[in-house]
Design a protein around this nucleic acid. Structure first.
Lengths: 213, 213
DNA sequence: TGACTTTTGGACCATATAGTCCTATTATCA
DNA sequence: TGATAATAGGACTATATGGTCCAAAAGTCA
């Protein structure tokens, strides 16, 4: 992988996240990445679709390194890591002025029905994301209410995050995004033995960070 | 409102739901609605954007009449209506082969960041949807755990539904969609006094309908 | 030095797009 | 009957798109 290729991928990722894949032209990418023409671009990618698929992969790499890293921290209560992960996504969304949303959710909405290659690539992304959540949930397992399906729980977390970003973009209201995040945390808490439907035992970083921001 | 206008709106809604707004051309709409040319279309709408905004409104009318009607049923346990509403959406998604997703969520993803008119229209849709959910939750109120915020709960339901449709389109797995729906129902149940995190008291229509399909 | 990759610059093509304009013909309804 | 709206059909513009092809300069490394 040349540096240049990665630069193009990152430039394209930025554009695609904000404008969508179809609305992002090759010329846009060339401009954003500082290439000198079509030939230069097609030296690295054989087609726009190939670029798009590579962008998905690159985006997940970054997400795994940055966003998902919280889940993999070796120390600390796993439940707390889960809660901080949710907070971090909510916070990032609010801090970016509710723009952009989830790169994977966006592409899923735009491409999944019509382009099978994209759909499969995105399915693999969701699966890997889900695996990371599941391994945290596995650590929590002893404290979980018996009968809880950790795979299903992980999928639920992903769904809520996707939904949170959609609602957030439309409402552009930090309280709404924080509300969804904290309802998700309440839901997770309710899966623990002794964790009834009431208040979350520990108040988490969303409200704390909001107060300090 | 002429009949023709509504026909155009419905034809456009069908196309937009599956291809997106920007990927749907005026010529597509003309073909789908059986119009005879550009002039015929522009007789009813002044621009593509005006069409799109009108489609959002029309889609919500239909959704309010059909999907949301479950929530407004005068008889029956409100909690049961809520559960059946969730089931109905999951079922409709599965029955349409996981295609299309939520018309509002789709447009939110595509347009909310770049087009303020769309964003405001969609915000109003989410608000009205939320109101309907809140009035059901209001009926449930006596049985809710004290301190539960019904507005926040309603927003959460919308977010989960949006996320469910995104994950569903990518995974194309009925069990996954049903799993999210039933996790949402479990979450709602956990908001009731005595409704701990365990099994939902009544098994609802998703699994029942799946068995009968 | 020589082979190879990368960069630069641009012409070119087929196709599609939103939107305008014009001219008729046909329904509709006061 | 007469004004107005709806249907019909087509020409046209300006702009953008993904993709191809070509030719040359600059860098890289054995």
């Amino acid at each position: 992988m040349s540096d240049r290729r990665t630069e193009i991928l990152d430039a394209a990722a930025r554009l695609i996240r904000h404008q969508g894949f179809q609305a992002t032209s090759i010329d846009d990418v060339i401009r954003e990445a500082g290439l000198c023409g079509k030939a230069h671009f097609y030296h690295y990618f054989e087609s726009k679709e190939a670029l798009g698929l590579a962008v998905v992969e690159r985006q997940f790499e970054r997400f795994a390194e940055q966003g998902l890293s919280i889940l993999r921290e070796p120390l600390g209560d796993p439940m707390d890591r889960l809660n901080r992960f949710v907070d971090a996504i909510a916070r990032a969304h609010i801090d970016s002025a509710f723009q952009g949303g989830c790169p994977f959710g966006n592409l899923a909405t735009e491409m999944a029905d019509e382009n099978e290659a994209f759909r499969l690539r995105l399915r693999s992304v969701f699966d890997r994301w889900s695996e990371q959540l599941q391994s945290v949930l596995w650590e929590v397992r002893p404290r979980l209410v018996p009968g809880v399906d950790t795979a299903r729980l992980a999928t639920m977390v992903i769904a809520v995050v996707e939904g949170m970003l959609i609602v957030g973009r439309v409402k552009r209201d930090a309280a709404v995004v924080e509300g969804i995040a904290s309802e998700l945390q309440r839901y997770l808490a309710s899966q623990l033995v002794g964790g009834h439907g009431g208040m979350v035992e520990a108040q988490h970083a969303v409200s704390a960070a909001a107060a300090g921001a």
